[in-house]
């Protein structure tokens, strides 16, 4: 019983933290999901600062040589409108303040990480990296 209560408290606390950090219930659920995965290791919470480093890069080993950072297409200021590096197609801002619908559709979020972590980093992102990334952009 004690364990269950403790677990419930932990979950409730975790949700509260994510909700406070992200401001949208669906985005909070996505963050909680990554928090649950990240907690398997030495997880102590998401970091907007780590998220910023991930966003700005530059990284090596990505599939697309022209895009060594998220900022390559999304611009260094995530409030701005991005531009696809090859086609020139506009990309809606990454910053939640400029684009409140950002990170509110779980399937869409996973689709983009699945693709662009490979394109930019040359590998899949960890749950912690995904959480850091959303945390950074939720505060932008």
């Amino acid at each position: 019983m004690k364990t269950i209560l403790l677990l419930a408290a932990t979950v409730a606390f975790g949700t509260g933290v994510a909700l406070a950090a992200s401001g949208d219930p669906e985005r909070a659920r996505i963050l909680d999901g990554y928090a649950a995965q990240a907690k398997a290791s030495d997880f102590t919470g998401f970091s907007a600062e780590r998220g910023r480093s991930l966003y700005l890069g530059p990284h090596a080993g990505g599939k697309v040589a022209d895009t060594p950072a998220c900022a390559s297409c999304h611009t260094r200021d995530p409030v701005g409108t991005g531009r696809h590096y090859k086609t020139g197609r506009d990309i809606l801002p990454m910053a939640v303040s400029a684009n409140p619908k950002r990170f509110t559709d779980p399937a869409e979020v996973e689709k983009r990480f699945e693709r662009d972590c490979v394109n930019v980093l040359g590998r899949a992102c960890t749950a912690r990296e995904k959480g850091d990334f959303i945390t950074f952009l939720s505060n932008q």
Binding site: K63, V64, K86, A107, K111, E114, R115, D116, V118, N119
Partner: peptide
């Protein structure tokens, strides 16, 4: 996809 990962569900 022309040098880019454009995978879909």
């Amino acid at each position: 996809h022309f040098g880019e990962n454009a995978s879909l569900p």
